[in-house]
C-alpha cells in the first residue's frame, strides 16, 4: 500500500516516562477509514501509544518521545506544530465516560464554542448532527438541557463520542471505551464504531480480544512496549505468525 491510504504512520517510536522506557521502536501504519485495534496485556504500552497520537502525553511531566509520528504525512512532533490544532483533528474518547458537569447540550457544544462558533443555529445544528452520529439523539433530544451526569454510563460514553465528533476530527482515538460499560451498552458502542469508520479513521485500544475481532479491520499486538505483530485482523486471529501472538489470542496468558 502507498502512503496515501495510510492515515497514520508511526516509525521507530520510543517513549520514556523519566527513565522508564514504555515504548520501544514501535512502527505502525493505520489505514484511513478503517478500525485499527491495539491489543495486549495490561501495562504493555498500548494506551501510552494511543496517547502519543494526539500528544496527550505532553501533559505528563518527564516524558520524552523519539521517532516519527505522521498524520496525513505531517510529523506531529515537529517543533512548531500547534498541539491545539492537532487535537482538533485527532479526537479522543477515554476509558471512563467523562462528560463535563454541564448540560448534555453544553457538553456537545463545548468544542465548537471553544473554536469560535457563536451562532446559535449553527451550534444547534452541530449538536443535533453529532448526537445523531453517536446514536444518542433519539434518547436525549427532549432533555438536552439536563445535566449529563444524570444519564446512564453507556449514554455518557456515547455523549463523549458525540462531543468528540462535534469538533469534526478525522481521527478518533478510543482508549478502552467499553471497559466500564455493561454488555448492552458495549454492543451499542461497537455498532457505532463500525458506522463511524465510514467517515473517520479509528484507533481503539481494547482489553477484549473478542471486541478486537468483532470490530477492527487491522490489529496490532503489543507486548512489553513493542509491537509483536500487526496486520489484518483476520490474519492476526487466524494465522498469527509469532508464537507469542498465538499464545495471547488463544488465552494462554494476559
Amino acid at each position: 500500500m502507498t502512503n496515501s491510504t495510510h492515515k497514520i504512520i508511526v516509525e521507530d517510536l520510543d517513549f520514556y516516562y523519566d527513565d522508564f522506557q514504555a515504548l520501544e521502536k514501535v512502527s505502525l501504519k493505520a489505514p484511513a477509514n478503517q478500525v485499527t485495534a491495539l491489543i495486549g496485556p495490561s501495562g504493555c504500552g498500548k494506551s501510552t501509544f494511543l496517547r502519543t497520537l494526539n500528544r496527550m502525553n505532553d501533559l505528563i511531566e518527564g516524558t520524552q518521545v523519539e521517532g516519527k509520528v505522521l498524520i496525513d504525512n505531517e510529523d506531529i512532533y515537529q517543533d512548531d506544530l500547534d498541539v491545539v490544532s492537532l487535537r482538533k483533528r485527532v479526537g479522543m474518547v477515554f476509558q471512563d465516560p467523562n462528560p463535563f458537569p454541564k448540560s448534555i447540550y453544553d457538553n456537545v457544544a463545548y468544542g465548537p464554542k471553544a473554536h469560535g462558533i457563536k451562532d446559535k443555529d449553527k451550534l444547534d445544528d452541530i449538536v443535533e448532527k453529532s448526537l445523531k452520529r453517536a446514536a444518542l439523539w433519539d434518547e436525549v433530544h427532549d432533555r438536552l438541557d439536563k445535566s449529563a451526569i444524570g444519564i446512564s454510563g453507556g449514554q455518557q460514553q456515547r455523549l463523549c463520542i458525540a462531543r468528540a465528533l462535534a469538533v469534526n476530527p478525522d481521527v478518533i482515538l478510543m482508549d478502552e471505551p467499553t471497559s466500564a460499560l455493561d454488555p448492552v451498552a458495549t454492543a451499542k458502542i461497537e455498532e457505532l464504531v463500525e458506522e463511524l469508520k465510514e467517515n473517520y479513521t479509528i484507533i481503539i485500544v481494547t482489553h477484549s480480544m473478542q471486541q478486537a475481532a468483532r470490530i477492527s479491520d487491522y490489529t496490532a499486538f503489543f507486548l512489553t512496549g513493542e509491537i509483536v505483530e500487526a496486520g489484518p485482523t483476520e490474519k492476526i486471529f487466524e494465522r498469527p505468525e509469532d508464537q507469542r501472538t498465538e499464545d495471547y489470542i488463544t488465552g494462554r496468558f494476559g
Binding site: R87, F100, Y110, A114, R163
Partner: peptide, 9 residues
C-alpha cells in the same frame, strides 16, 4: 483531559 483533547488550550 477531555477539554484539552477537544483542542482547547
Amino acid at each position: 483531559q477531555a477539554s484539552l483533547a477537544l483542542g482547547t488550550n
